[in-house]
Design a protein around this nucleic acid. Sequence first.
DNA 1: CATGAATGAGAATTCATTCAT
DNA 2: CATGAATGAATTCTCATTCAT
Lengths: 211, 211, 211, 211
Amino acid sequence: MTEHAEPATPGATTSNRTRKRRSARREQVLETAARMFFEKGYAATTTEDIGAELGLLKGSIYYYISAKEDLLFEIVERYHEDTRSYFERILASDESPLDKLRELITTETAHTATNLTRSSLFYTEWRSLSAERQQAIIAERARHEHAVLDWIREAQRAGTVRSDLDPKIATYAIFGMVNSAYRWFRPDGPRSAEEIGVEFCELVLGGLETR
Amino acid sequence: MTEHAEPATPGATTSNRTRKRRSARREQVLETAARMFFEKGYAATTTEDIGAELGLLKGSIYYYISAKEDLLFEIVERYHEDTRSYFERILASDESPLDKLRELITTETAHTATNLTRSSLFYTEWRSLSAERQQAIIAERARHEHAVLDWIREAQRAGTVRSDLDPKIATYAIFGMVNSAYRWFRPDGPRSAEEIGVEFCELVLGGLETR
Amino acid sequence: MTEHAEPATPGATTSNRTRKRRSARREQVLETAARMFFEKGYAATTTEDIGAELGLLKGSIYYYISAKEDLLFEIVERYHEDTRSYFERILASDESPLDKLRELITTETAHTATNLTRSSLFYTEWRSLSAERQQAIIAERARHEHAVLDWIREAQRAGTVRSDLDPKIATYAIFGMVNSAYRWFRPDGPRSAEEIGVEFCELVLGGLETR
Amino acid sequence: MTEHAEPATPGATTSNRTRKRRSARREQVLETAARMFFEKGYAATTTEDIGAELGLLKGSIYYYISAKEDLLFEIVERYHEDTRSYFERILASDESPLDKLRELITTETAHTATNLTRSSLFYTEWRSLSAERQQAIIAERARHEHAVLDWIREAQRAGTVRSDLDPKIATYAIFGMVNSAYRWFRPDGPRSAEEIGVEFCELVLGGLETR
DNA sequence: CATGAATGAGAATTCATTCAT
DNA sequence: CATGAATGAATTCTCATTCAT
C-alpha cells in the first residue's frame, strides 16, 4: 500500500531493490489472475493455471500472494476504490441533482466498460469473497444507490424529474442498465466506453425528465 | 407418457401412484437445491448440504437425481423454457414493434421478479453448466436481443422511436435494466412484480419515444 | 441342497408350493447373474443391472439371494462340484495312469467348453470371493494337479511317458491348455466341445508319449 | 525429449536432475501399484492402499499419476510393448515356420515367467481398462495368434507338422499353455524361466511334429 | 412378492496451501 | 526466488444392502 520503506526496522533483510522487483512481479500475478478469473471464472481457475501462465509452479505464486482469495479481493478492491473515488467527487460537487445523476451515469458506465475484467469480477465473483469482504462491497453499493435515490427525489421536488415515477424503481433501473455494460462491451467495438455512457444517459434521462 | 399400466410385467413397472409420490419428492429436492444455490451459490452448496436440508444423507439424493449439475440445469432450464414461451408468443403477435417491445419489457421484468430464485441462477450460475448447455442459453439470449434490436429499428423507421439513438446500445440498456430485477426485487416489497414491469416500461419507453 | 421339505418345522409359514416357485425364480436370478458377470465382469455388474434384466428393482433380488457374492459363489461352486464329480470317478477307476490322464484331459476340456459361462467365472472371478471360498477352490485345484502329476510319474516309471520331461512342468502345461478353452471356445463354432477335448489329448499326449 | 535446458525461461522448466528424481519416484509408484494389483487385484486395491504402502496419503499419488486406470495401463502397456518387440523380430526372421514357432514359444513363455507381475495383470486385469485400451490389446493378441496359425499351416504343407491336426485348435492350445505360466511360475522355483520355455517347446512340438 | 426410499461406507479425484531445500 | 513434494480436507458419486409397507 505504502510506497515508503519502513525505517522502523533498519536491519530488515529485504532490500529496497528486492522489494521493488517483487512488487513488479506481484503486479503481473494480479494481472494474470484477473484475466484468467474473467475468462474461466474464479472457481474454475486453479493456482496451477495461474502459475503455468506465468511460467511458475503453483506453489511459487505464494511468494507473491498469501491466498487465492486475496487475489480476487485485491482485483475487486481496486475497482471498488476507483468507484468510490469518483463517487465521492460527484457527491461533493455543487451541481444540481440531475446533473450529478447525469455525471454518475456517464462516469460509471465508462468506468465499467473501461475496466472490463475488474468490473466483471466485481459484479460476478464477489460471492467468492469472505463474508466481511462481501459486506464491505454491499455497503458501498448501498451508498451509491441511496445517493441516486436522493438525487431523483430532489429532482422530483424541483420539478425536473417526472413525479409520477417511483424513485426507487428508477434507481434500480439506472444501476441495472449502467452495470450491465461489462456483459457485452468490447473495447474493439464501434463505440467507445465514453460514448456508451453518454448514450445511456440520454436514454434514461429521456425517460425521467419532465417534458 | 402412457396412462395405461402394462399388466404383462407387473413387477417391472413402477406404479402410477409411486411415480407421483417420487416425483413429488424430486420436486422438493429441486426446490431445496434451487433455494440453496440461490443463497450460497452453486459451487458453495455441496450435495451433503442439500441432503442435510432434506433430512437425507449426501448419497441419498442420487436416488432422485443423477448429477449435481443436472440439478442446476433443470432449475435453469425451466426458467429458460418459460422465457421462450412468452417470447415466441410476442414474436408471433401482430402488434406494432413498439407494442411488442412494451410487452416484452413488462412480461420479462415481471417474470424475472416472480421467479426470483430461478432467474437469479439463470443469470449468475450459467457458467457452472457444461459447455453445450451454456451454448443453448447463450443462443436463446441472442435471439431475444436480436428481436428487440429489430423492433427498435423498425420503430425508428416508422418514426415512433427517436432516430438519433443507437439501437444496439438501447437494446443492451433494456436488457440490463430488465434482467437486473433478480438482484433487488423482494416479493414482500411495496410493489408487485407486474408493477415493476410497467414502471420499467414507462421509463425506458419515455427515453426512446419520439416526443 | 436338499430336495426334501424339512418336517421338523411343521408349522412353517412357507408352503411347499411357494418354496418351489421361489426356487424356480431363484434359478432365473442365478442364470441371469451368471450371464451378466460373464459379459461385463463381476465388479462391473451391479445388483441394479441384474434386477433390471429380470424386471425387478435391485432391492427385490434380495428376496432370492442374501448377498451379491453368494451369487458368484453359487455359480462357481456348481462348476466346481461338477469338476469334482468326474474327477473322483476317474481317480477311482482302475485304468492305466495314461488312460486316466487321457480321460481327464478330454472330459475337463469338454466340460470347460460346455459350461462356458461358469468355467469362465470360475477361472477369472474367483478372486472376488471371500478368502475361505478362494481357499476351497485352490485346494481342489491342487488335488487335480497332484493327481495328474502322479499319473505322469507313474507312466514315466512304466515307460509309457518320456522320462526326460519334467512331470511338474508337463502338468502345468496340460492344465494351461485345457483350462484355456473358456477364452476362445464358442458353441456355434465348427468344432464341438468333445472334439476339442480329443484334439487337445492328441496334441499333448503326442508330446508326452514315448516314441 | 531435449537434453538442453531452456535458459530463456529458467523458472518455467523443471531441471534435469529434478526430472530424474521425480521419475524415479514415479517408477516406485508404478512398481508398488503393480505388486499390489497382482496381490489383491486391481479393483480391490484402492489409491489409499497404494499411498499407504509408499508412505503417502491417497491424494498424494496424484502428484505422479493422473488416474488409477493409467497406473494399470502403463504396467500392462510395458508388458505389451515388450511382447510386440520380440514378436516383430521373430516375424521378420527368415527361419522356417517351425523354428519361428519354437522361438515364439520359448521366448513368450520365458517372458511371461520373467515378468510375473506384469504378465499376470496383462492376462487377468485387462478388463478393467477402458474400451479402446482393451481393443488395442485384443488386436495385438489376434495378430500373434494369426501368425502362429499361419506358421502351423505352412509347416503342415511342408510336411513338418502332422496334417491331421486342426491348426486352429493347436494354436489355441499353444497359447493356453504358454500364457498360463504366470499362474504358477515362481522365480525361486527349481527351474528358470528359460528352462520352462524349452520344456514347453519340447512338449508341444513333440505333439505337433510328424514322426 | 415386490417396491420405494433410504443408508452408510467407501472410492477416486481435486486443489489450495505449506515448507524444506 | 522457485521448486518439488507432500498434505489434508473436501467433494462428487457409487452401490450393496435393509426394511417398512
